[in-house]
Write a protein that binds this DNA or RNA. Structure first.
Length: 438
DNA sequence: TGAAATGTTGGGGCG
DNA sequence: ACGCCCCAACATTTC
């Protein structure tokens, strides 16, 4: 049943906000009859083995927030569940579609998905328009003088900042154009059960960090007992905040925090130019390390029962909340790779499963950094001592006691390895693999 | 955004 | 006063 009037579609993906949204802005400016769409992609949801997933819940909460605003304007968000190709085919049957708009998504599987959707739209006479939105600089926008991508952070960061200085990054006033949305009766959003998941304790927290938090970030960020980090990562993951807004604040308030935003784009750039990092070491020699990969030891790391309080506290925070303080991410990662000599990919996969703010590029970059296998990574011999790290960053055991109530009891496990011994074992394994190759 | 091993320095105890 | 030793504190090198 075709409809008389042609429509255009704005496809929400990782940009779940109405304000300062690049593709939404262009879509609303260029079209007068816009249907906003979100798809719960079954190929993604089916891969989530745990059906109590805060990330799915977070998406739903963000959609509810958008829906509340749209129903006030006499419009509605269309939320579908299924395969993207099938859903677009259905929509093409139902409507005459002129154009579809979306923001760039850079992950390898998303690139494939978008190519498929573009192909089927084109076949039906519709056009697909995509825009840069989730980063300040993408793909080939920050390159060395010789045209090659950077592999070291600091020179990349300098070039990134100098490029930013040459242009003015203005917000896209998409929210002021919402009158271009289709006027239709509000459709009900699916419940979390409708899409096969269970409710969680997830909340839609404010997306923009307090200015004082950003100002004090440099001094406070390393102490996990302090709420000294800004927790914007989940908002950047799902696009409930605009990177342009954050970059503006960062440039005004704190250089250290600014650099963290640039690290994010650095790792996205690395993933784009060096997609092999998804499955293997950035530096090939590191693929030759003979990991021990002991399943029981891996389980103790996952469960937070290694007997090293700072490691166990971190893993318990992750397991219970889906979040882990960044200092502790480094400590737990170093422990898995360099005390247990377990393949960094095992840890990467576990974090991917558990982290609310999971982002392929950053997670992979962080793990390869910890393993020493990445670009601009920690040298392989830089091995964290959990006891020293505790002395420096949680000397009063405040963070540790928050997550481990029995840390001083007989019931708390003994350390599962001798750190000094494990350190020597890892240095030997790395040396063997890297012999004559660096 | 590391920590251990090794080297250097200088104050104090002591004969 | 002097040499010797010890060792903490700091610096440098090494992994």
């Amino acid at each position: 049943m075709g409809q008389e009037k042609a429509i255009s579609i704005f496809w929400f993906r990782r940009d779940l906000r109405l304000d300062d949204n690049t593709a939404l802005y262009h879509c609303l400016r260029e079209n007068s009859n816009v249907l906003p769409l979100f798809i719960f992609d079954e190929s993604i949801l089916n891969k989530l083995e745990n059906k109590t997933d805060r990330r799915v819940h977070f998406i739903l909460l963000a959609l509810e927030s958008i829906q509340n605003r749209l129903t006030g304007l006499g419009s509605t968000l269309l939320v579908k569940h299924g395969s993207c190709a099938n859903i677009f085919n259905d929509l093409l049957q139902q409507y005459t579609i002129d154009r579809v708009y979306a923001n760039h998504d850079y992950e390898p599987e998303a690139i494939i998905r978008d190519k498929q959707v573009e192909a089927l739209l084109t076949k039906s006479g519709a056009t697909f328009h995509t825009y840069k939105d989730q980063v300040i600089f993408e793909k080939d926008e920050v390159l060395k003088e010789d045209g090659k991508p950077y592999t070291i952070f600091t020179p990349y960061m300098r070039k990134w900042k100098s490029r930013l200085a040459t242009l003015s990054v203005e917000p896209y006033p998409s929210e002021s154009l919402l009158s271009s949305l289709m006027k239709i009766t509000a459709s009900r959003l699916p419940s979390i059960e409708d899409i096969g998941f269970k409710p969680t304790d997830m909340l839609l927290t404010p997306a923009v960090a307090e200015e004082d938090l950003i100002k004090n970030y440099t001094e406070q960020r390393d102490y996990p007992a302090i709420n000294g980090t800004t927790r914007v990562s989940i908002h950047l993951r799902f696009g409930t905040v605009s990177i342009r807004q954050l970059a503006k604040k960062a440039s005004e308030l704190n250089g250290t925090w600014f650099n963290e935003l640039i690290w994010r784009e650095f790792y996205m750039m690395i993933l784009y130019h060096f997609p092999h990092v998804v499955n293997s070491a950035f530096k090939p020699a590191y693929n030759l390390i003979e990991w021990r990969n002991n399943d029981e030891e891996f389980k103790r790391w996952c469960d937070g029962t290694t007997g090293f309080p700072i490691v166990d506290a971190g893993m318990r925070e992750l397991n219970e909340t889906g979040f882990m303080h960044n200092r502790v991410r480094m400590i737990t990662a170093s422990f898995l790779v360099k005390d247990l000599l377990i393949d960094w990919r095992w840890g990467e996969a576990y974090f991917a499963k558990k982290l609310n703010d999971f982002e392929l590029a950053s997670n992979n970059g962080g793990w390869q950094w910890a393993a020493g296998s990445g670009c601009d990574a920690a040298p392989y011999f830089r091995i964290f001592n959990p006891t020293e790290q505790t002395k420096k960053f949680d000397s009063e055991f405040k963070y540790i006691r928050k997550w481990i109530s029995n840390v001083n009891d007989f019931s708390y496990p003994q350390p599962m390895v001798d750190h000094k011994f494990a350190r020597e074992r890892t240095l030997a394994a790395y040396k063997k693999a890297l012999k004559n190759q660096i």
